[in-house]
Amino acid sequence: MNFNFLSPVSDQVLAHNELLSTQALGRKLRIHSNQHGIPDLDDVDIAIIGVLENRNDVDYIGEEFQLDEIRKSFYGLFPGSWNTIVADLGDINKGESVEDTYFALKEAIVILVKKNIIPVILGGSQDLTYANYRAYDSLIPMVNIVNVDSKFNLGDSAKPIKNNSFVGKIILDQPYNLFNYATIGYQTYFNSQEEIDLMESLYFESYRLGQISNDITVVEPVLRDANIVSIDLTSLKGSEVSLKQKYSPNGLDGKEICAIARYAGISNKVTSFGIYEYKPSKDDEMTSMLVSQMLWYFIEGVNFRVKDDDFSEDRNYQKFITLVESQELVFYKSNKTGRWWIEIPFLAEVNNKLKRHTLLPCMHQDYLDACNNKVPDRWYKAFQKNSV
């Protein structure tokens, strides 16, 4: 397997790892080292890849960064009672050009996803999500992306790609493989009214910070439906992170971001997960520890995945039918996990790429709302998208 573009985990981190308890996570990982090369990937479930690329950050002024502090924090944690096998494949260094870095990341993701390994990307700037998305061109027909971010990052797609405009490129660059884009934790004052209107007109989903702080479970269905999850560390509250990482006094707190990471892990559809915009500073323990805990919760989620979205047998689910404004809504509840889905009427004349999207994850609350004659928002947006 050709991973020539990956550089091994630094000797300093490996020396630190040797001093840890034999029970620590770092002692149980398969690590890409100078001494032993790329580890054996047979039966690996999750592979961590660092990407040291930040040149498309709008504020880039030539600074380098590394991920050693995150690795030290992460290796020092203790695993849960997991059956999940995790590898750390080291880092993709900056290529000659940013496009070279994108290409290397894309190749790595394609190789891993085809082997049923979930790549976890630790990144520089969030425009790397574009390379992550492009890897799916050869993997699946339509892609759902969830971005945990205070901004929509739509930007001006006519200009070169940056970390604040990569979503515009994802929407407008061919091939068009994006089905749904959802933003979790957006803060209205960071987004222009034009962007907010555009998200609405494209029937994309957005969850405001206040909505999530009020009830974190609202994001579970959208994460259950995601293929790619991308987290921008600037979505975190300034008090939760180190000096250079501070961005806004308001944002998601540590518990909320870890819950989101766990929901992403539990989702059967999520096949790649990325954490971006890491900016190390001298007092770095806070950010690196929080990122490590997010990784921990993601792995914990993956470990507890349950296959329950197969509704071919009646005994696997209960079916509920309600009538809202003369529209029949059909809900399914999994007997195994208690999770809910709603059926989207499949329109025969619409592009066949959408065939697998006929069941949409939802909440019990959506069913209760439907019983009270209120159309669930997710269903309405998906139905409109299918009708376009």
Rank of each mutant, 00 (worst) to 15 (best):
131 A>Q: 09
101 T>W: 04
103 F>L: 11
43 D>R: 13
100 D>R: 09
291 V>K: 01
125 S>F: 05
251 G>N: 03
373 N>S: 13
110 V>N: 08
255 K>C: 01
51 V>P: 09
87 A>S: 15
191 N>V: 10
114 K>I: 05
240 E>K: 01
1 M>A: 07
126 Q>I: 07
68 D>R: 04
305 R>D: 07
316 N>G: 07
345 P>S: 07
305 R>V: 07
367 Y>T: 08
30 R>W: 07
30 R>Y: 15
128 L>A: 06
339 R>Y: 12
96 E>K: 12
2 N>T: 13
75 Y>K: 00
323 L>F: 03
204 F>K: 00
307 K>P: 00
1 M>N: 12
308 D>Q: 02
140 I>A: 06
7 S>C: 09
137 D>P: 06
381 K>H: 11
383 F>D: 08
187 Q>K: 15
90 G>R: 09
332 Y>R: 11
100 D>S: 12
67 L>V: 00
201 S>H: 14
252 L>R: 06
225 D>M: 01
171 I>K: 10
60 Y>Q: 07
321 I>S: 10
160 P>R: 09
152 F>N: 09
280 P>H: 04
367 Y>C: 02
292 S>D: 03
321 I>T: 15
147 N>H: 14
227 N>G: 03
292 S>Q: 00
53 E>K: 06
105 L>K: 08
56 N>M: 09
271 T>S: 13
68 D>E: 15
383 F>C: 04
225 D>H: 12
55 R>V: 05
380 Y>S: 06
111 I>K: 15
270 V>Q: 05
272 S>I: 00
111 I>M: 13
57 D>H: 08
36 H>R: 13
324 V>Y: 03
382 A>D: 03
28 K>F: 08
342 I>P: 11
353 K>H: 13
145 I>T: 11
120 V>I: 12
235 S>L: 01
126 Q>T: 10
329 L>N: 10
30 R>C: 00
184 I>A: 05
280 P>N: 01
115 K>Q: 15
171 I>V: 14
43 D>K: 13
